[in-house]
Amino acid sequence: MAEADSGFNYDPTKNYDDQICAQQRDIEKQITDEQSLVSNILSFDVLKTEYQDDQVFQNKIQDIKSRYKHMRKTRGDGNCFFRAFGFAYLEHLLKDDSDFPRFKEVASKSKDELVSLGFPQFTIEDFHDTFMEVIDKVGNKISYEEFFQLYTDQGISDYFVVYLRLIVSGHLQKEEDFFMNFVEGGRTVKEFCNQEVEPMHKESDHIHITALTAALGVTIRVEYMDRGDSDKCNQHDFPDGSKPDIFLLYRPGHYDILYP
């Protein structure tokens, strides 16, 4: 009866995967149409409008506004942490290249490390090539406009994100003894990487950030804007006690970029 009422009769011999995928594609398309991969510089007024009737968030926006100049939004496609991280750090290197030689060396060595951990050389190379091309262009001091165009090219940007995901996966597996304590759901670190790290559009958590900052030697401050009672955002530095290179804003399920 219930099935008849809803107008849907489940047929166990039918393949519903395609329909589910099609629905998912529609949602993704809507997000793609409405949000750019990385936005231009924005004032915090956009956040104020988003949370008009919400006093908790209004207070926290005020707190952020007192400590940061402006922000930049990233597309809410599940890759936002990686996308924001890549953009913010490369932009940081464009302005201040003192860390560039160290970073470049870590980045170029990372391929052999991944291969030695058992990642397939053939496909790793494909992503690593693009990853290094982008980094080299930043090293060659391309203009901000060129960089913005490069990083918001979907193909290049996605390849960059994939490679960052692979670096996280590699680091988690290399430091398995440590990270196994933080993996939920009785999964092995390898299973966690297969399910939550390597596939595109999987959202990032504390564990991803810890691994990425450790693997690349880059420091991040995350400002947490959530429903908590306080008038101020909590902040967390990765790794603890470091001086941050880049600043990210976290709202439940999403990361954007902050500029002090």
């Binding site: 393949n15 990642f119 397939p120 496909t123 994939v162 399910q195 390597e198 596939p199 595109m200």
Partner: peptide, 15 residues
């Protein structure tokens, strides 16, 4: 069509 995890939610771009 095939029901195989790596072709759905466990796909990795390294394949």
């Amino acid at each position: 069509s095939i029901c195989l995890d790596i072709l759905q939610n466990r796909w990795s771009p390294t394949y």
